[in-house]
Nucleic acid binder design. Sequence first.
RNA 1: GCCGAGGUGGCGGAAUUGGCCUACGCGUGCGACUCAAAAUCGCAUGGGGCUUUGCCCCUUGUGGGUUCGAAUCCCACCCUCGGCACCA
Length: 820
Amino acid sequence: MAEYSRQVDAKWQRRWAETGLYSFDPDRVDEKLYCLSMFSYPSGAKLHIGHWWNYGLTDSWARMKRLQGYEVFEPMGFDAFGLPAENYAIDTGIHPRESTMTNIDTMRKQLQAMGAMFDWDYEVVTCEPGYYRWTQWLFLQLYRAGLAYRAKSPVNWCPGCNTVLANEQVHDGSCERCDAEVRQKNMTQWFFKITEYADDLLGGLDRLDWPEETKRMQRNWIGRSEGANIRFPLVGKQGEHIEAFTTRADTLFGATYLVLAPEHPLVDVLTTEKQKEEVIAYRDYAASKSERERLATEREKTGVFTGGYAEHPLTGEHLQVWIADYVLLSYGTGAIMAVPGHDERDFEFAEKFDLPIPRVIAAREDDIDDSLPYTGEGVMQNSKEFSGLTSSDGRQEVVGTLEEQGLGEETISYRLRDWLVSRQRYWGAPIPVVHCPHCGVVPVPEEQLPLTLPDEVDFTPEGTSPLAQCEEFMQTECPECGHKARRDPDTLDTFVDSSWYFLRYPDNRNEEEPFDSGWIDRMLPVDQYVGGAEHAVMHLLYARFITRVLFDLGYVNFTEPFEALVHQGVILGPDGYKMSKSRGNIVSPDDYVEEYGSDVFRLYLAFGFNYVEGGAWDDAGIQATRRFLDRVERWVNRLQTLLSNRPGSGSPQRSEITEELEYYWHNGIRKATEDAEVFQFNTAVARMMELTNALYKYDTEIPDQEKDIQLLENATRDLLLLLAPFAPHFAEEMWEIFGGEYSIFDQQWPEHDPQKLVQSEIEIAVQVNGRVRDTICIPPDASEEEIREIAESSERVQKYLTGEIKKTIVVPGRLINFVV
RNA sequence: GCCGAGGUGGCGGAAUUGGCCUACGCGUGCGACUCAAAAUCGCAUGGGGCUUUGCCCCUUGUGGGUUCGAAUCCCACCCUCGGCACCA
């Protein structure tokens, strides 16, 4: 009986390794297909279901591509720097390098046991000097190109631990370790100028074969908006002005006050002696709020008057200048003109603080409710000579007038901010610059890379980046003037590591350069990228940005790194919630793999869920796939018996059952191929089950001497090929029993015969007023007239055909609908 | 709060994108095989009702709308999930 087991996995994994079956052949680069799963972060020691879900099924897709003739490049590696290893070290004293490397060893073994086609010769580990050397190189390229700069920026500061906190270490405004209230503190940080690429990144999206919702998220994240910067001269401060960005210059005459972000530099200039105390207190209050809190629109508005005034650029009116935390320094100019009549937040604010709320826009059509605040477009009023203009004309006219007077101009603003890449942490790639008292910031010469991360470092939080305490690391000489200088104590965001790893895979051993451009241009872009939707914006945007920079610098000849993208869903716990230790609903793959073998587990993941949506784990389902593989195995053995007892002279009889089998055979090939192509693995497997059922049915219903053994052999052969990507070890084993030549993965993917899908009769529904009343069988080529006749003659239909037929709708191959 | 996705039988999930709701599988029931059970093979199976060879009504989170026809499109609401720039 059932033979497939863990031992079969081991047998074929050994054979594959011995024969180098999955080694990428560079000579066939013209047929290459670069199939990439997002590499894994070695935080836990073991693979979880999510890994199997991502890697196992992407491997199935890649195996199909191999069978279709592609030279598949399927590498794997580890995103090995990052916060969890450092936190673990703080708690346990185990060095991040040690814990990370141990985890990687375990995970690599487990990934091998999965039986995927990963070619480990191309492995990449981001925390190894051989890799981060080139991450540092990348930093230097951006620096030279003027795309890396230093600026002050607020960070989460825990006064208790004396350290910078990640957002996830802040709970309800307090530090997760010591409970102290977290403050926003300005620190000098390195940035990459991703905003310079905002329009390119936006434009590049259109062409990509990515999920529309992901593109939409990226577009929203970039948040391009066209508008104007308008200058409001400060009253009594000659030459100084507030610059405010607005998309609604047509509402300028409705601006009754201005609001600055509390951190805005002009606040000090504007604040009067009388208001000083209040302003300082409010700034302090704002520093305790996170950005997300500040942006919550439902929160009650807060703010204080600075005591200062600015002039309206067109009326000369004096406008109060306030500060409020709903205005962010990081967006636009950090200042807004408040138009309470036509903006929800300004309206709320003005009501609360009793500021005037004039109307300057009226709806154009009467039936629209334009009670204030009216945020729609319309016709300008109470706007001097601009009154009567439409919003869109008005915007142009107003900005034009301002421009003539030097008080404003058209501007495009982005929600996207520059990428903050420095981290005050140990476990990352050191930033390769030197701070020299004479020369300032000096890049480390490329030939001195890698700038190695020292091992002997005390990484418990001490108020600075851990590396700052390591004199051995910090002390250096200026590469330019040779005087004593200090190194930069910060490390790079791990997103920098992962924003170019796909470029390193194909040339991972290169010690001269990050990659050979000529080679990489042939290997990339990635043909299919698969990874979680949680990376829809940040990782995927950063990787696109870096690729474009390298394109502009002449290192690669493509602008987009990932041609096609699929997000796998999430497998939830049996209770329908996300698996987590705290919920205690974690399902570990190990026990299942041990009991059933890798293929049963992989096949269940393929069959039991929608790949893009994921779903709750269900124990019962895995039995079903076990049973299915057993059923296939019994059939393969049964076929061997039939073959050895092949009746000498008996000639095969054609029948309905034969036609049915042929239909399921070829329909199975067609649909399984189409569905697997677009990652619809569950329906692909369903078609294989149907083919298996049809083989059983044929076997039970047709007497042995009348069986078409050739037909059975061909259909079975194709079934095994279809199944191979999803149950690779099992399929090799069956292929061997079947008498096929090693390896099944060197065979050709089957093709369907359209002839076999033509049916002599098709069934369509007959509706009356849109309700199904009967079904009829018609020849596939029947004319509308014929269909109508057959349908009308049905007794069941006639019952409902009372009165005159007003209309008849025929959907070919589907239904006919009478409207009475 | 903002951006994005989702909600279909007892269960996992299908549905050619506006055209027979529930493919395939699980579970359940019945039958065959068996001394018996398991395994296996086959058949049936959305819910309710009736005058039960058959017929009628209802059904895709909730409520409304558009249409000959809606799981699919529109409006409002409820719930779940992903992201929100220092988790990766």
